[in-house]
């Protein structure tokens, strides 16, 4: 089963995204910030990391940069609720740093699942 790590400091969102992905047949783990996420990735790299950008301890851009440096095979989707200046401000940076897909929150479920499928090469049976 393809594994996905969901990184967001909002526990409600983590739960919701986890359930969404589990129902689509993925194995999902959660992390509340970039530091915890990197710890989990080092122990057991997932196939995909879906990460928020603005988080305490280790924000998303740094997390993506580190992921892409140390674990280039792990795919990354960045999602953000908006920046200090404008709604999509961080997503362009995330893409430059190496995020494979970016979305502004809220993301439509179908869009997110389609992106996950594309990155992970289709759902597993």
């Amino acid at each position: 089963m393809r594994s996905i790590l969901v990184v967001d400091d909002d526990p409600q969102l983590r739960r919701m995204i986890r359930i969404t992905l589990e129902r689509a047949g993925y194995a999902v783990d959660e992390a509340e910030n970039g530091a915890v996420a990197m710890h989990k990735v080092r122990a057991q790299p997932p196939d995909l990391v879906i990460t928020d950008i603005v988080m305490p301890h280790k924000e998303g851009i740094e997390t993506i940069a580190e992921l892409k440096r140390d674990h280039p095979k792990v795919k990354v989707i960045a999602i953000s609720g908006g920046g200090r200046i404008e709604a999509r401000q961080y997503l362009g940076v995330a893409a430059q740093i190496g995020a494979d897909k970016t979305f502004g929150k809220p993301v439509e479920r179908e869009l997110l699942l389609a992106a996950v499928e594309e990155l992970l090469g289709g759902r597993e049976p």
Binding site: L13, I17, I19, T20, G81, G83, R84, K105, P106, V107
Partner: peptide, 20 residues
């Protein structure tokens, strides 16, 4: 400007859970 980010998170939770 200050609340938009948090608001999007909340909306995402509402929309996502409703969708589920």
């Amino acid at each position: 400007g200050g609340i938009a980010h948090d608001f999007n998170n909340i909306l995402y939770s509402i929309l996502g859970n409703t969708d589920l």
